[in-house]
Design a protein around this nucleic acid. Structure first.
Length: 342
DNA sequence: CAATGCCCAACACTTCATAT
DNA sequence: ATATGAAGTGTTGGGCATTG
């Protein structure tokens, strides 16, 4: 069937485009269109399967009803579940999303921001990589609705949604101490981003409070997986006194768990393990893996709410605000004292 | 004067015709 | 040959016209 435009309907029924538009947008009543005419138009539109031309609509309204979502890596379970929930929430409010993976690369991110802008997305939800402060600021300056999540730039006044990284990492480390681990390593990404810095600070604080030594291994962000395994394996091999590891992301934990297996270390007896970010299967592992679970649904719905507020109000009253949500420490078998010290 | 109906301009950009 | 400008794309919202 051929595409039918609003104009086609108008011509066919011998009415103006305006009348058709009123009726199809449910504004017949307030614009004094007769019930008979309303029904006639509705019926015909249904008969021919009329679908509004979104391009034309956007041309007129300046809106696309599309939100641009940028995550670090859509194949990472944390980001994919967040994105999935954002999609759901946005859909309920009549918005669709487009997403992409920044790979934490500022150059790629800048390009993608340009693409989103030129495509007239109505707003942005971004987990920004380092080095895009200028671009984020310019989005703000052009008055484009914007929410950052997972990490943000403390010196740029944006709306942000994050978890309490410092307190959560602190609690995770503290939990290992309570369970009689004495040489606790923190394996993290070599990253200046504020969420990683806070997790690091939380770990160090817990170590200091308990007069334990810091054992910190930073892994380059772009290191391929197999090399991550090797690196962690080498690190743990060279530091045999380490009896527990806190991983700052689940990606590193994947490699770390493989390294621990390669070294024939038993969890939790030889090595306690806690991971920042829960993964779906962690609870089914033997032993099950203790994890810091971020409130995925809440992060996503808060981000969408904040963004839609900006879009619909056109105001920026809520813009400079960081929403800090609590994460949950899921205490499982990989870090349990009774099992750890027979 | 209420009830009904719709014209017109604007949106941002491309294409095609006309003028220089 | 190049520049200018008018027309066209589908939709919307404000204001205006007609009818009884």
């Amino acid at each position: 069937m051929k595409k039918v435009s609003l104009k086609d309907i108008a011509e066919r029924l011998n009415v103006s485009k305006t009348t058709v538009s009123f009726v199809l947008n449910g504004k017949a009543k307030e614009n004094h269109i007769s019930e008979a005419m309303t029904q006639k138009i509705l019926h015909y539109a249904k008969e021919v399967g009329y679908m509004p031309n979104q391009l034309a609509k956007g041309l007129r309204t300046g809106e696309t009803k599309i939100l641009g979502v940028m995550v670090e890596d859509i194949s990472d379970p944390f980001f994919s579940s967040i994105t999935r929930t954002i999609e759901e929430q946005a859909y309920q409010k009549g918005y669709k999303i487009v997403y992409c993976s920044t790979e934490n690369d500022p150059v790629k991110t800048k390009e993608l921001l340009e693409v989103y802008k030129s495509r007239q997305v109505d707003g942005f939800i971004i987990a920004p990589p380092p080095g895009v402060e200028q671009e984020v600021q310019s989005l703000l300056d052009s008055g484009l609705p914007l929410v950052l999540f997972d990490r943000y730039f403390p010196n740029i006044p944006t709306a942000n949604v994050v978890v309490d990284n410092l307190a959560s990492a602190h609690r995770a480390a503290q939990h290992l101490v309570f369970n009689n681990y004495r040489q606790i390593a923190f394996i993290t990404l070599d990253s200046e981003q504020n969420q990683m810095q806070e997790r690091l600070t939380g770990y160090m604080k817990a170590m200091d409070e308990n007069e334990q030594k810091h054992h910190i291994r930073k892994i380059p962000f772009d290191m391929p997986y197999s090399q991550v395994v090797q690196t962690i394996e080498a690190y743990l091999g060279q530091h045999p006194f380490i009896d527990a590891v806190l991983f700052s992301t689940s990606y590193l934990a994947d490699g770390g768990l493989e390294a621990i297996k390669n070294l024939n270390l038993r969890i939790p007896h030889d090595m306690g393990v806690v991971v920042f970010d829960d993964e779906k299967l962690f609870r089914l592992f033997t032993p099950s893996i203790t994890a810091v679970a971020q409130p995925i649904k809440e992060i996503a719905s808060t981000a969408v709410d904040l963004l839609l507020n900006q879009i619909t109000s056109g105001q920026k009253q809520l813009v400079n605000k960081t929403t800090i949500l609590p994460a949950t420490l899921l205490e499982r078998d990989s870090s349990v004292a009774a099992l750890a010290k027979p």
